[in-house]
Amino acid sequence: MTLFFVVTLNGLTLAALYFLAASGFSLIFGLMRTVNMAHGALLLFGGYVGWSVVDATGLWALGVMAGGLAAALAGALVQIGVLGRMQGDELRQTLASIAISIILADLMLWIWGGTTYQVRTPSWLTGGTRIEVLGIGYATVRLYLMVFALSVGVGLWLFIQKTRIGAVIRAGVDDQDMLRALGYPINRIFVLVFAMGGMLAGMAGVIAGSALSIAPGTDLQFLLSSLVVVIVGGMGSVGGAALGALLIGLAEQYGLAYAPTYAAVVTFVIMVFVLAVRPQGLLGRAEA
């Protein structure tokens, strides 16, 4: 039973990270129909910046913020400088974002090298916490990660559902052309959403570097997981990203623990199943 609890918590940890990475990806995908293949690179970039800031100042929270802001800025620049110039040409945008992802990965290899980094956590996040109900101990930083992902999820949901800008973003997801024909400067909304997606990815990078570790390759790992999460959960919805992340995170960890030989297949079986039965994703809406 202990194994089951630990594996479940591992699954939830992974799900929390996947959610942080995928929510921004999903938002961008839903609004602009752009598959931002540089999303993983933004995550790793945020992670590295966060690591450097924590290394220099010793302030973990500052590192998370710096990682988020750096990736937000990078995301906005990608949209303004490259993708925004190919508006409406989704294939070109996707291909360009692959190029950006490769260039960023090489630049990061140049700056930070090929070693694995772990972000130093403050004392309140270090060590383990005993969970009496389950009779096990678990890494404190991972428990806080789950709380953080949950608050980000709720915060993002409130932002999308309750604010005026959130309503404009939803309108853009529903019918972009109509929103433009009503005089809304959609390009500014695109930049904003790209920056938000970058910020979520960047923070996820720093947190991934705290709870696990980051290294070259982390970018592709999270890009792939974000793709799968969004395909399973349904694009453009915060709830879909959460559900998809939960399913994929848990499935990966259960697979590793109970059927290690087939672990790599599990997520793709889920993806294939969803594509066959509900191609718009579990919480996604069919195209009108």
Binding site: A167, R170, A171, V173, D174, D175, M178, L179
Partner: peptide, 11 residues
């Protein structure tokens, strides 16, 4: 072409 996920008030 009403935005289906916006309320009347939000529109």
């Amino acid at each position: 072409r009403i935005f289906r996920s916006l309320t009347v008030e939000e529109h």
